[in-house]
Design a protein around this nucleic acid. Structure first.
Lengths: 336, 336
DNA sequence: TTGTATGCGTTATCAA
DNA sequence: TTGATAACGCATACAA
């Protein structure tokens, strides 16, 4: 691996001159520039980002803290962010974060001290903590929000349109002839929960289908809770013929409960999930679900760090990325 | 942000001594160590990884390539490795890897060029590819093997004792009075598959229980395949009263199939899995399983990078870490 | 327009 | 067991 010194020697100039060429300085004679560029080519020289970081005093690391690593959502997001960092030649520093820990502020401070990151990615539900925003601002850490409940000044937000996605999925049910449509919603701390439920209600409303209380349950994003929700809903005298769960884990729970009760999926019951996490293609039948654009989200998040760095001041744009409704085997025409 | 020099000044020692304390060198007096640690505490000093990288001439990044990111095994391993890297102040660069891609060698080369990593963690099943070993050796990349089929010269291996774990789980069944015990094994490309099956057979053999062909199925680690395996096994005239699956996903499939067939778990059928991945505590009843020591494995893997660096030549020790048989609700006394 | 010398924060060499 | 000092690769103040 060639260094700037070797390039300088080969080109017969000083390191400073090479540095000038690399950084596009103005006052430099075309002849020397040519010499230097040839040498760079010859040695296939690429500056060491490490040395540059040390000299310039900034870090290429991006920080991320998250709560529940076992959720399919976080697992997929993790992977996407890691990949995006690799591609952008940046590094990821992560911290497992206990939301219930009273001393979480200290944990964040420690994390910042240890990693010296000046850019962070915030994921739900912590991305909505005003206290966290204040702490990071005080420490002069830039941050980008993934799927926050609302945009805030001084930080970009990246999300998908949960409400629309939910509507689209319900419309899919309706097109298949379903009328009795249930919904198992997520954890109240996540905005996605609210948005997805609103989408469900809107779609029914627009189709002129009245809402029924017994068709709406809260499963808090958990498989376990959803088992009970599904059990209640499927034991109703007039049970729904289609259920949209607010994430794939809960949709899997619905399928499992249906199996137990002898209700066939998708013949007797259509089931759809959200996120397109690993479990969606694991179970049988494979889940119809809303594919969250994880890769795009991660890429945009990492990208936005670069923008902030370059412009010097943080923008606060909100980026809405496109999801995809993925039809698989768990949904079908309404029975009868 | 405090630097090592300030810590040295406050502690009244040289910077080298502080460095020694930070890196856990051996020959250092307890008194000096204490002084230094106090100073570190006082200034809440954290070393600059940038400077370290520059000095050490080696990127602090560790590379990892893996195939199926959706498996619970890989997901948990990922997280553990990420955490271990954070703790060791290193970074993780990952690459999603398509094993079936004919051009995989090029993909690896690109990854190495892009990330400039000189240390890699290899996971099953790629960790057994001789071609990959040769490629990395040629590129002078150190690597450590996680659960390889056999140790190789020039690289450390880290694993758990799959065979013993499997025996222990079968013994648990036997102690509960089970005689008709089935096994759904994993993917033939993974050694763990063989070892776990051997453990199953050994334990039965030692207990004097004859093997029965119809109690052994291959589910290739996939939920989907295991559904069919479980269906066949549970429809037998004399069906097993206990089933050990070679991973948790397949165990979940067994539970699901049992539900569908009206067989109660654990009253009529005991089910155990392997790995203790998220799904184990997700489903109901919670799975009895073998907890793979993910955190220890990841820590040892990252640690071994440091050893290699320090000693200059790569060791090739094999480390066997302790698993744990976790009894949960999916196993119980044999029926009748 | 170009070159020299210094420092960023570490770790390593070698001597004490 | 400890310390003084060099060196990692780059950018820049200052000098020429």
């Amino acid at each position: 691996m060639a260094t700037i010194t070797e390039v300088a020697k080969l080109a017969g100039v000083s390191v400073k001159t090479v540095s000038r060429v690399m950084n596009n300085y103005e006052h430099i004679s075309p002849k020397t520039r040519k010499k230097v560029e040839d040498a760079i080519q010859e040695l296939s020289y690429a500056p060491s980002s490490i040395a540059r970081q040390l000299r310039m005093g900034d870090s290429l690391s991006i920080g991320m803290i998250y709560g529940d690593p076992s959720s399919g959502y976080q697992s997929r997001l993790n992977h996407a962010v890691l990949k995006a960092c690799s591609d952008a030649r940046r590094y990821l520093a992560v911290e497992l974060f206990d939301e219930k820990n009273m001393d979480w502020q200290k944990q964040v401070e420690d994390f910042l001290d240890r990693t010296k990151v000046t850019n962070m990615i915030l994921v739900p539900p912590m991305c909505d903590s005003t206290d966290l925003h204040e702490l990071l601002t005080r420490r002069q850490v830039n941050f980008v929000l993934i799927s926050p409940s609302r945009a805030i000044a001084g930080a970009s937000s990246i999300a998908m349109d949960d409400r629309r996605a939910s509507r689209e999925m319900i419309n899919h049910f309706i097109e298949l002839g379903h009328i009795r449509i249930g919904h198992i919603s997520g954890h109240p701390d996540h905005v996605a929960t609210l948005l997805r439920r609103q989408g469900y209600e809107e779609a029914l409303h627009r189709a002129g289908i009245p809402l029924r209380d017994e068709y709406l349950e809260s499963g808090r994003f958990r498989f376990r809770n959803a088992l009970e929700c599904a059990d209640r809903m499927l034991q109703l005298d007039e049970r729904p013929t289609a259920i949209l769960a607010a994430n794939d884990e809960m949709a899997a729970a619905v399928v499992m409960t249906a199996n137990r009760l002898g209700i066939r999926v998708p013949e007797d019951l259509s089931v759809a999930g959200f996120d397109d996490t690993p479990i969606a293609k694991t179970i049988w039948p494979e889940l119809t679900t809303v594919a969250q654009p994880f890769e795009d989200i991660a890429k945009a998040a990492v990208e936005s760090m670069r923008t902030m760095k370059r412009t010097g001041l943080s923008v606060s744009e909100t980026l809405i990325l496109e999801h995809e409704v993925v039809i698989r085997a768990s949904t079908g025409p309404a029975p009868e």
